[in-house]
Design a protein around this nucleic acid. Structure first.
Lengths: 334, 334
DNA sequence: TGTCGCCTTGACAACGATGTCATCGATAGG
DNA sequence: CCTATCGATGACATCGTTGTCAAGGCGACA
């Protein structure tokens, strides 16, 4: 900036005024400064300015998602980015990998860079460590999973309800042996989906004792192996509820290998890419990651704009997409 | 930091020393400072430090990809993030949307935030506007698409070769009417893939005059419509080469609607999620986005570490994955 | 013509950190 | 016992920018 000022023959403050479009600069001066800035390819240093600026905003957001190469995360990320772009805000994105250490590291990296707000998917047992930052006024919005040990805005799917919906759908087809294949129990949404499944069985008066319930599945490989094991054991289920997109894919692979994709019902939680093109089509309880991301970004910006209402939990509805796999009738007993 | 210093009863410089682990601080002082920092939940301001620091590094990278919710982009992003994480570097990610204005905006946002390096997928006709930044010493690595009007590192797939491979594969099955469904011509890789397709036909002595060549397809919808139109016209192709993942998906949808997925061969460029689970499986020339991202990040960090060798173009091999759709024989003429 | 006020401009301090350098005390060597 | 050396520490300038404030010039108005 001093160089631009020197070249234009004006003071640095005047350059600052021109760059920021402040009033009360003569047209001639503006022209001189702009010419000099172009000549030197000057780009203002946002962070230096931020150091002194009254509002202390870095126009930067920290986003922590499951993994930037997961389709759900990608959709959330895209929605957040679009909302941020409209306000000239850049987004730091990180992958959580459901690792508490990564969570801490990522959040710490965001805070050291003085992001204006945080949009977080978390895995740690408690997010109480964010309390001081919240007090300092940094908006924190939790996405996908609700926070623990801390009260702040959250934007989530209705996990228990969605799981109940999936379970009810299978019950309605006449299934009574509905296996549950779920993610790790330290994941809040996995617990909720498990609960929704159990509750719905209870409401239908179906015993949960005889059901095969497998938790701790976290990727395609473990899910596939678990499914194969199910059918290697006596009394395999006639239907499966899988609680997560990667788990669903693992189930699909296993059913195909066993040639049972047409005689075993399957409903997945969270949509699967090209799920409508498979045979059978994959029935899922679809979440709405775009809406989740958009809403979360809106919350952050509303907070930054001064909204001091109580922390709110926004629930984004899920939707049952019937595509075939969930409408398979139970096998005749034998 | 002044607060920490005050609470610990030491000077700010001493706090700085403790935070940065510099030598020559007594154990007692270190303890006092660390206690004070914990009490106040102190997080150093990386940007303030960077202003004065000798190396001028923000430990920040700018990444511009097609779209953060495209699977190819997501994989590149993830690989870059992993490499960055190992060095304590955070990543700004933005979506290009093949819009030159977005490119300019994103790059400008990165530069104003003084990123240490850029990893870019570009759409503008020329990236000459980056020359001053390059001269300033900022490493710029182009991914997926090669730069124009500027020489810098690039990490790309062998697009022409891969397209030729796909085309040759279809020729080898006996096809002679192989439609080309391609992306917009202003996209460098689309031009390369088109060229590879034409070259291979030429090498095989197959006339390109009779081939149906449709360009300008950019998403599922336009690709699906174009495919439907192909089969609505006389003399539809017996095989299709689609040059991009979304285009491939559009073709698959259209072929299904027409019930021709089993009598029309299809090879796509770039892999499609769950492509192996469809019926028929989707034969593709798969790229290796993880490797592209990893290599690009390595180049940036090598440059930051002082590598001043000439700009290099790294080619990441593609791989033909035969899954069924590409191995369909031509229909009997009639 | 003098006063007032507005427009334009720049000098200066400050933001939160680090690089440089000086100071102080203790320890070792002669 | 004196001095050279080294470890520990803090004062101060500085990074690139913006907020504050004062000064100079000019036109309007009485």
């Amino acid at each position: 900036m001093r160089h631009v000022a020197a070249l234009a023959g004006v003071g640095v403050k005047t350059v600052s005024r021109v760059i920021n479009g402040e009033p009360n600069v003569s047209a001639a001066t503006i022209a001189k400064v702009e010419a000099a800035a172009r000549t030197l390819d000057y780009q203002p240093d946002l962070h230096a300015g931020n150091l002194r600026r009254a509002d202390g905003r870095t126009r930067t957001l920290g986003l922590l998602v499951g993994s930037v190469d997961n389709p759900f995360s990608g959709a959330v990320h895209r929605a957040v980015e679009d909302a941020a772009l409209a306000r000239g805000v850049s987004v730091f994105a990180s992958s959580l990998d459901d690792d508490p250490d990564r969570e801490q590291e990522a959040v710490s990296a965001f805070l050291r860079r003085r992001v204006d707000g945080l949009i977080l998917t978390t895995i740690s047992e408690s997010q109480a460590y964010l309390a001081p930052e919240l007090r300092r006024g940094t908006p924190v919005v939790f996405v996908d999973r609700e926070p623990a040990g801390l009260t702040s805005d959250a934007v989530v799917s209705d996990n228990a309800d969605g799981a109940a919906l999936a379970t009810r759908h299978l019950l309605e087809q006449g299934h009574r042996r509905i296996a549950y294949l779920g993610d790790r129990h330290d994941i809040q949404t996995a617990r909720e989906r498990h609960r929704g499944y159990l509750d719905e069985l209870g409401r239908a008066g179906v015993s949960t004792r005889g059901q095969q319930i497998i938790e701790g599945l976290h990727n395609e490989a473990t899910s596939r192996a678990a499914t194969l094991a199910l059918f290697d054991a006596p009394n395999p289920p006639t239907a499966i509820f899988s609680s997560q997109n990667l788990v669903t894919i693992g189930v699909i692979r296993a059913l195909r290998e066993l040639g049972r994709q047409h005689d075993t019902a399957l409903v997945g939680f969270d949509d699967v890419p090209l799920g409508d093109l498979l045979d059978p089509g994959v029935t899922v309880v679809a979440q709405n990651p775009q809406e989740i991301g958009r809403t979360a970004a809106e919350r952050v910006f509303a907070r930054l704009d001064g909204d001091i209402s109580a922390a709110a939990r926004t629930i984004v509805p899920t939707q049952l997409l019937e595509r075939g796999s969930g409408e398979i009738a139970p096998r005749a007993e034998g």
